[in-house]
């Protein structure tokens, strides 16, 4: 190898090494500040706070899919969720499932007819040990330390869909194509997404920051309760204390934060 070529290669080698030091430095030196920079939803003065947000769904109060539609519609509307005819491209944050799909493994051969026909509301469980966060190679999905919500950074997601494989609840959707033409009415208060990124329920982090309850909870008129799992006096704790509740796939150890009164 002639010496000038060698020099050029050395130059590029050293330059690329130098470029690599920055992320390494950032990862090591800014550990403490990293959390601050991820708080991209600014909190208002009236913001609702919790150690770990949780939801209790009183499934007894849902008799038919019609009872759920206002909740689902409220979520779809404010989060700019597109509607696709092709089921493959579907985006779902909160939706309805049969008991044996919401709770596979818990469905007995013979079951209360009423429970079997009752619709079950499913959404992201905002697990305390979220496997999706563990899987994400870019921290585009992360568990917010301040209140335990599992959030998505739509601008960092590379669309590898590892989180979708990791989620045992099928809570995540991928934008298989540009969703914007399929949004009935765009709400300018919430970002629309681009093709190629994953999305899911965010427990209405943007509403909590303004002091409002999640849209589905508001629309449910008491059928859903929302509160701090670690506040012994919260409404959710009260309901869990006084009712027998179940969680989806509890045996997997992800510690889902959505409880169901059956």
């Amino acid at each position: 190898m002639d010496s000038s070529r060698r020099r050029v290669l050395q130059f590029f080698g050293i330059s690329s090494l130098a470029l690599m030091t920055r992320p390494v430095y950032n990862a090591l030196a800014t550990e403490g500040h990293a959390e601050k920079s991820r708080e991209h939803i600014k909190r208002g003065e009236k913001a609702l706070t919790a150690k770990q947000w949780a939801m209790v769904i009183d499934t007894r109060q849902f008799e038919s899919v019609e009872d759920m539609e206002p909740l689902i519609e409220a979520c779809n509307k404010i989060h700019n969720i597109p509607h696709f005819e092709d089921k493959r491209h579907e985006i779902k944050w909160i939706w309805e499932e049969h008991y044996h799909n919401a709770f596979p493994g818990k469905a007995a051969q013979f079951l209360s007819e009423e429970v079997e026909n009752r619709p079950f509301l499913v959404l992201c469980n905002h697990c305390e040990n979220p496997p999706c966060v563990r899987a994400c190679p870019t921290q585009a999905t992360f568990k917010r330390a301040s209140d335990g919500i599992v959030l998505m950074d739509f601008h960092r997601c590379i669309g590898c869909r590892f989180c979708m494989a990791a989620c045992p609840f099928g809570a995540r959707s991928f934008n298989w194509r540009d969703p914007r033409p399929f949004i009935k009415q765009t709400d300018a208060k919430f970002p629309t997404r681009t093709k190629g990124v994953v999305e899911k329920c965010n427990f209405c982090a943007e509403r909590l920051a303004e002091g409002k309850l999640p849209a589905c909870v508001e629309a449910a008129e008491g059928k859903l309760a929302f509160g701090d799992l670690y506040d012994p006096d919260s409404e959710v704790r009260e309901l869990i204390k006084t009712n027998y509740t179940i969680r989806r796939k509890q045996e997997l150890g992800t510690e889902p934060c959505v409880y169901y009164i059956v």
């Binding site: 992320p23 390494v24 990862a27 994400c136 190629g196």
Partner: peptide, 19 residues
């Protein structure tokens, strides 16, 4: 296979040891 291939270097910009 990536939805956003132009962001592939995010994997090294934000090294995530638990992934």
């Amino acid at each position: 296979d990536l939805g956003q291939p132009m962001r592939i270097f995010n994997v090294w910009l934000y090294p995530t040891l638990h992934s």
